[in-house]
Simulated assay, not measured.
Amino acid sequence: MSAETATAAAPDARTERRAKRIAKNLTSFAREHGGGDAVVEYVGSVATRIVVVGADGAWGDQVAPSYAVGRRAAELAGLTLHDDFEGELGLKVKTGPYEWKRMAGIQI
């Protein structure tokens, strides 16, 4: 592997620092909920959302400043990364009264 390839694959120092800060929160969540799966999604041109689903069905999210930071944070936290939020991952999510009340309040 050439030096250029190694440099391109490795995150830069700023990305790594940001990812480590976010990974602390993700790691804490995963520890409290028996592990976790994650999906990293673009929110827009300036942010990325990391959706985490715990083994117990609890879920949460964290916003990262870029896709690279979000993906790296999920990797550092030891989460299982998924390409999309479909199928088995979606079935793991447990919703409570709060979510149902919010969804019921949205009328088309």
Rank of each mutant, 00 (worst) to 15 (best):
H33F: 11
A64D: 11
V53L: 06
S28Y: 12
V52A: 03
A55V: 10
V46H: 15
P65S: 11
A30T: 05
A30M: 11
E32T: 12
W59T: 05
V40L: 11
V46L: 12
V43D: 15
S45W: 12
V39D: 03
R49S: 13
S28L: 12
H33R: 12
S45Y: 08
G57D: 03
G35D: 10
L26C: 08
G60M: 06
D61S: 13
D61C: 09
V39M: 06
G57C: 00
V63G: 03
V40I: 14
R49I: 14
L26H: 03
A47E: 08
G35L: 12
E41T: 15
A55Q: 03
G60A: 09
V39I: 14
G35P: 10
H33V: 07
H33G: 10
G36D: 06
S45P: 08
Q62N: 06
A47G: 07
V51M: 12
S66F: 02
D61I: 00
V63C: 04
R49A: 13
E32W: 04
D61R: 04
E41N: 14
D56Y: 10
E32F: 05
G36V: 11
A47M: 08
I50E: 01
R49M: 13
A58P: 01
R31D: 01
V51Y: 03
G60F: 02
W59F: 11
G44I: 08
H33L: 07
G60P: 04
F29L: 10
G35T: 08
G57Q: 01
A38F: 03
A55N: 11
G60D: 15
T48F: 05
V53A: 09
G36T: 09
L26V: 07
S66E: 07
D56N: 10
S45E: 14
E41H: 05
A64I: 12
G35F: 07
A38E: 08
A47S: 14
D61A: 14
T27Q: 09
T48C: 15
P65F: 06
E32D: 10
V40K: 01
R49G: 02
T48K: 00
S28Q: 12
V63S: 03
R49W: 08
G60W: 02
V43C: 09
G34P: 08
H33P: 14
G36Q: 08
V51T: 15
E32Q: 15
S28P: 03
V63W: 05
V63P: 00
D37I: 07
G35K: 13
V46I: 14
E41Q: 15
T27I: 06
I50R: 00
V43T: 14
G60E: 12
G36M: 13
S66A: 10
A38G: 04
T27R: 14
A64W: 11
G57H: 01
S45V: 14
V40W: 07
Y42K: 00
A30V: 10
